[in-house]
């Protein structure tokens, strides 16, 4: 079962900070619901896992993530993840993430993601029909976590626009800005919530129906 995704997410974070977070693979992985990097095997190779819970069924994929390419000039990162679940499923993903500046607003950026996810075994057999929707849900949750985490990063030095943005957000939320330099971990969903996925599916389905009629 192969799912291809090509998504653009506008973020209210400047490109430099988003890129800084993206290159910190451990931190980025933490933004993925249920995912965790447990061990660094080399400069570009990591060991980790993802836990997905849908109702009573839990799939726990363990595997590796390799950085195939990281081009700072283009803010482009190519990753390959591979893993297997003990219950008889395996998965692999080729992901290309590129951060582009938002031409209209230098304090914002766009996160472009292209992914090819291949799932084999029970997960593909049972979950095949919901793969696209579940992937969409996961990504949406990931992007929200990513955004929140990126916002807690200090602005890149010597970047006036970024500094201005930080000042701006500090003005909006004095408490946070006044906090010590260490970024405060945002509250991110650590596990994929089956009920939330189901609810989101129902919403998007009805949304689709209404959209068609309108």
């Amino acid at each position: 079962m192969e799912v291809k995704l090509d998504k653009q997410y506008p973020l209210d974070v400047d490109a430099a900070r988003a890129w800084a977070l993206l290159t910190d693979l451990k931190a980025t992985a933490n933004c993925m619901p249920g995912a965790e990097i447990t061990e660094q095997l080399s400069e570009t190779s990591f060991k980790g896992g993802v836990k997905v819970k849908v109702g009573p069924a839990v799939a726990q994929f363990g595997g590796t993530v390799d950085v195939i390419e990281a081009v700072a000039a283009e803010r482009k990162m190519v990753l390959r993840g591979k893993g297997a679940d003990k219950g008889g499923s395996s998965a692999s993903m080729d992901l290309t993430a590129i951060i582009t500046a938002d031409p209209a607003n230098p304090a914002h950026c766009i996160l472009n993601g292209q992914a090819a996810v291949i799932v084999n075994g029970k997960f593909a057999q049972f979950g095949g029909r919901m793969m696209v929707q579940v992937s969409d849900m996961l990504l949406a949750q990931f992007v929200e976590n990513f955004r929140q985490t990126a916002l807690t990063l200090p602005a890149a030095e010597g970047s006036p626009t970024a500094a201005a943005q930080v000042a701006g957000s500090a003005a909006a939320s004095v408490g946070d800005a006044a906090a010590p330099a260490a970024p405060k971990a945002p509250v991110v969903a650590r596990e994929i919530n089956g009920l939330a996925i189901f609810w989101a599916l129902v919403k998007s389905w009805f949304g689709g129906l209404l959209g068609k009629k309108a």
Partner: peptide, 11 residues
């Protein structure tokens, strides 16, 4: 079967 050989109808 999907392209990877997963049988999508075994229940």
């Amino acid at each position: 079967f999907d392209a990877q050989g997963n049988l999508l109808g075994n229940t």
